Every structure is written in structure tokens, then in C-alpha cells.
Amino acid sequence: MTARAPVKLRVANQKAYLWDLNDIQYLRVQHHICGVLSGTLPQVTQQNVFLGLPLVLMPEEVVLLVRNGIAVIVDDRAAHLDPTADQAESYHASRASAVKAQQATHYANEQAKKREMEELHRDKIEKRRREKEAARRKRAEEDRERQRAAGEEVGDDGGGSESVRIEVPALQPGASNTGPPHSASSSSSSSGPSTGSALPPTPSDNDNQPDLSNVGYTIIIEPRSDSFAWYDADQPGVTFSSIEAAASAGVWNYPQTVLQESRCRVFEDLWRKGFYMGGGMRFGGDFLVYPGDPLRYHSHFTLTVLSTPSTTIMPLDLVAYGRLATAVKKAHLLGSWDGDKGEAEYASLEWAAFG
């Protein structure tokens, strides 16, 4: 089986984003990395409930993936070069073509729906047409009655307009029979057969095209930049395979303190034990610890990470951790990283003896 290439984490302003749905699925299924969807979805009203791409990763997730060779860090801003004039023109042309295609499809769907509704309500439409025709005739008859009462001459067409008589000259041998009368008369006065008689203008293809200027369309933004000709993530100084290299380039600056390093180590330790990890801010901790995929399981623990195993904890904090975790039907887990032993240590808190 061919080894999969490292996932590219697009970093901008010290935040790592995933824009590829295949990468998101791969990390979630194969490596228990969930992240948080933060992008809005078109035409969805509740944007705080249903979110889409990109996926934002926690700093601990980024460190874990890079240290284990699963992903690399990409300086997304440096990977975007200035497009040339030809590239920009081609991009705008493709966007305009996509908009026209979308409008044409929308117009065709609307027309098909209109025909379907006309077919469904044909009887009602025909009845209304007959009613309008009867009303028009009734108004015309009332107009004729008023004209008769006023002593005016009433024509067959219901009005008093005079008839217009149009004389069409006889067609001469060799003359064109497709033009208006004046072209025929001009051809008869010529000395020979007419070879350049005026023809009615033939409709062009544009005359048959519907007006799509008022047809709505959706602006589609390409989520990934890989398809752009001016995007190059493989150029030197853009992609980093280690946290240290990214930190020296100023692209990534986590972890920096003992507490941050302890969080990364404890996070990775629980990850290696098969747990899924998520953000725990809503439940009063650093992380939530799930026994399986968060889409299927509730978390069992809220986790608070300490800098070292000897870090002092105030008694009020212990009470708060225990009562808060019990209130949300979880156990509170205290974790720390022992650098001397090279292992993580844990202690769990549960509020008991309710009387």
C-alpha cells in the first residue's frame, strides 16, 4: 500500500486550517483528530449550528500531527504569489463563464417549473382567459352602444377609424417576392432583373437567447488554492516538516511555555491511548476526553492540564472542578507531564456522598 503524503496544514496568523474534505476525513477516521468547523454555509440561516469548511485545528492537534510526521505546516500567505495579468484575466473569464452557466441552468429550471404549473392549472388558465375575452367583448359592445347613442358612425371593428387601402404593385418577371412592396416597385422600374433586392433581416443567435441579466446566481468561492496557477506551496521556505523549523521562520509559535508543552504531551498521551480529544472551555476544562467519535459518544472526562506534577492546586479549585464536572455528568481529570520520567500522570475527581 502506497504511503499517504503528509497533510498540508495551511497556517495563517498562528492558526492552522484544513480546506480539503478528504484530509479532514482522513485525519478523523485514521488519526482521531476532529478539529472545529468554522466556515459559514450558503443559504443556511442558523450559522451557529451548521458550519462548514474550513476546519480549525487546536494548537495541540497541530503539534501532535507534525511531530508524528502525519502533517506539515504551510505558510499559506507566502504560498500565494502575485498573479500575472494573463492568470488574472483567465481567472475572471472562468468566473464569468461559471456565472453564466449557473444563470442559464437556473433560468431553464424556472421555465420548466413554469410549464409544469401551466400544464397542471391549464383548465383554470383557460377559464380565466375566456373570462377576460368575454369582459373585453362586453366593454367593446358598451362602447359601440354609446357611439350609436351619440350619433357617431360605428365600424365593424367597434371604433370610428377610417379604413386604410394599400395597393401592392404586380410582381414583374425576375423580381424578388420576399421583400416589402417598395422593393418590388423599385425592381419593376429597373431595366433588368433585380439581383440585389432587399431581404428581411434574419434573426441572429443572440435574438433567440433569453435575457439572463436579472437571473440570480450564487457566488462560489474556491475553498482550496491548489488549483490556482499563482499558488505554490512547494517553493523553498514555505513548507515546514518540524515545529522547530516553523518556529524559527516565525510561522508557528506553539508551544513556548512549560504549561503549553505539558498540554501537548498530555494531549498526545491520551490520543495514543485511543481517546478522541476536543476543546473543554464550555465545561470548565482545557479538553474534553471522549471514548470514541464525538458524533457517537458523550465525553467521560473534562481535563485540566497542570504544568508539572508538583504544581500547587488551591482547595477551592478542587471543589470547583469536582462540582462542575458532576453537574455536567462527567468526571474531572487532572493531568500533568513528568519530564524526568517521560510520562503523564492523572488524577480524577468526582463529587460523591450526596446524603
Rank of each mutant, 00 (worst) to 15 (best):
E222I: 04
H106R: 15
P291T: 07
D143L: 08
A347Y: 13
S213G: 08
H106L: 08
A134N: 11
F228M: 07
A93V: 06
L21G: 08
S188Y: 05
R77V: 06
L120P: 00
T311I: 02
M277I: 15
R323D: 12
G237H: 05
R115L: 14
W19V: 03
A88C: 02
S242P: 00
F354C: 12
T326L: 05
N208R: 15
A184E: 04
V44G: 01
D123I: 04
S248F: 06
Y321P: 09
D86V: 05
P193W: 05
K273M: 12
E222F: 02
T257Q: 09
E345P: 00
H31I: 00
Q111T: 04
A344F: 08
H31Q: 07
S227H: 14
P201Y: 01
V154I: 00
V328R: 14
W230H: 10
A150H: 10
A325Q: 05
T195N: 11
D211K: 11
T40F: 06
V62Y: 03
S197R: 01
M1C: 10
A320S: 13
R144T: 05
L212R: 13
C264A: 15
M1E: 15
Y346P: 01
N48P: 00
D286A: 05
S97L: 13
Y217N: 08
S187D: 11
S97R: 15
R165A: 07
R148V: 04
Q47C: 00
D82F: 04
I24G: 03
G355A: 14
D286L: 02
D232F: 00
P42C: 05
A229G: 07
K113P: 00
L21H: 11
T105M: 11
A229H: 07
M314E: 13
H182G: 02
L53E: 06
